[in-house]
Design a protein around this nucleic acid. Structure first.
Lengths: 166, 166
DNA sequence: CTATATTGGTCAACATGGCTGACGTAAAAC
DNA sequence: GTTTTACGTCAGCCATGTTGACCAATATAG
């Protein structure tokens, strides 16, 4: 730690490199979410609302339990958020066709507008970063990020790519 | 949105690509912090404590206001966290040599132990991801993450790299 | 030397968004 | 007909962010 005496340059660089990664993740995630957070704050919403809107937006008709699986939070936490979103007219639900216990979630027109505002904001940030960094960098970026995931999350993402809620 | 009719394949891929980035950031950050969060929870601490410990750990003798600049939170929030950390013996402070208003922050032995436990945990995750993805991917990863930063954050990081608090 | 600015802390109050536990209801599945 | 599932609700707790007000010690500029 305070052991500046290099046990080996490779190892020292490695430690530095890992710390750089850790820090970059912290700062990048903060800045990446920051802009959206401001917009959300205007509408008295938070990041939790954003997540719900986002995943309902790209999985229209998703069930509550599938959304819970994606978000990995308790149903109580999600329920609070969803109630708010429905009360404010961003989200609607309709009973499942085959299983009528299910509440299939959809964005309203207002919800779609907000979702695309937020997503295009974050998308623009990504687009700029991708453009600066180049195609190869983007591939590396995604490979490393995937490497950071828990194995359950990887399964979930792959599975989600196949599933269509439409 | 539901407009599957491709206006152009490049554009469609781009939208998909951006969404993939957004989602990967969310999942990766969650999983990346998850392990450390568990350990912290055992000691009745949260992510805020971790951040403080981390940045004190790699900037021993940092002042409160410099730490505030890094973390971008209010001094009230930080103060609460620091008080806890000092009470529990993870952090000590000593008055600045030149400016005696300053409280220079240091990790105690206990603090160092915890910090390295947490950092090596996150470091191992990064090391694995880096190893899997390869050197070029790591470079791309870092380039893209830097591209996601606000310009102020970039300045701050570059400046921080030069500053030595020792 | 005095006035002001800086560094840092404190108290109070509030919101968000996690959590647990308990309990209820409707519908599906067996 | 009983059990399981999908979903909701109420109550309360905790961590962590926020504002606003106010205070003390010290540095610095006039």
């Amino acid at each position: 730690m305070a052991d500046v005496k290099p046990i080996g340059k490779a190892l020292f660089l490695r430690e530095e490199e890992l710390r750089r990664g850790i820090e970059l993740m912290f700062f990048a995630y903060r800045d990446f979410t920051g802009e959206a957070d401001s917009i959300l704050a205007e509408q008295n919403m938070g990041r939790a609302h954003h997540r719900a809107i986002y995943f309902i937006g790209c999985n229209p008709g998703i069930t509550v339990s599938d959304l819970l699986t994606i978000l990995c939070i308790t149903k109580q936490s999600l329920s609070r958020v969803l109630s708010g979103l429905m009360q404010d007219g961003y989200v609607t639900q309709k009973p499942g066709a085959t299983d009528r216990r299910q509440r299939l979630l959809y964005l309203t027109e207002t919800g779609i507008v907000l979702e695309s505002r937020l997503t295009s904001l974050q998308g623009r940030r990504f687009a700029a970063a991708y453009r600066e960094a180049g195609v190869d960098a983007v591939d590396g970026f995604q490979r490393v990020l995937r490497g950071l995931l828990d194995s359950d999350t990887i399964d979930q993402i792959d599975q989600q790519d196949q599933t269509s809620y439409i």
